[in-house]
């Protein structure tokens, strides 16, 4: 037997724990009454703690991984960034005062915001380079873009207030039914594929 396989009793213990936890949480979901609630409360609190531990372990694993290859620039940058974040976060005030706030306000926030701010530029560049009005889909795309842009421009909406109503109508009468259809279709598709898979394996 390979040494990577845990002992039998550990495997049985983990299965028993998973069944107990899942059963209690599922029961509580449908019947949030006295005894079930009493049982679910410590289970859920433990899950929150465990999730925190998982995050810590993931961070430790990341540091160990990049620590082994610290000569590479990207790994060195990761280690410096992680050390800086951890150090300033542990100082009194955390990220809400002092050096932690400075790191957050002048490094983290502008860096992250810059990432998202690039997205419209990429989209506009793609639109400029790839838009071809000889396809119906391209026309619908461009028309939808212009309509939503108009409906969110303050000067346009102030001049023509019906544009605000148009935005609401587009969301309520067009976008919501389509998304609801997608959600329902997705659920039915998952169920169908599951049943088909099960049938295929048993047969």
């Amino acid at each position: 037997m390979s040494s990577a396989v845990p002992p039998l009793f550990l495997r049985r213990l983990s299965v028993a724990l998973a069944v107990w936890t899942g059963g209690v949480v599922l029961l509580h979901y449908f019947w949030p009454i006295g005894p079930v609630r009493e049982a679910a409360q410590p289970v859920l609190r433990t899950v929150v703690l465990l999730s925190g531990m998982v995050l810590v372990l993931a961070a430790v694993r990341g540091v160990m991984h990049h620590g082994r290859r610290w000569r590479r620039p990207e790994s060195a940058a990761f280690l410096v960034g992680a050390g800086l974040s951890l150090g300033t976060g542990l100082l009194p005030g955390g990220y809400e005062a002092g050096p932690g706030w400075w790191v957050y306000a002048w490094l983290l926030r502008p860096g992250w915001a810059a990432l998202l701010a690039l997205v419209p530029l990429f989209l506009l560049a793609a639109l400029y380079r790839r838009l071809r009005m000889d396809e119906p889909a391209a026309f619908l795309f461009a028309a939808g873009l212009v309509l939503m842009l108009w409906a969110q421009t303050p000067a346009m909406v102030a001049t023509w207030p019906w544009l605000a109503g148009l935005r609401h109508s587009l969301l309520s009468w067009l976008v919501a039914p389509v998304l609801r259809g997608v959600l329902i279709g997705l659920s039915l598709g998952v169920v169908w594929r599951l049943l088909a898979q099960r049938g295929g394996h048993s047969g």
């Binding site: 409360q41 929150v48 999730s51």
Partner: peptide, 12 residues
């Protein structure tokens, strides 16, 4: 941390 489970704990 814990997403859905954390929300259930919060609700309790």
């Amino acid at each position: 941390p814990g997403e859905s489970a954390a929300l259930q704990a919060l609700a309790l």
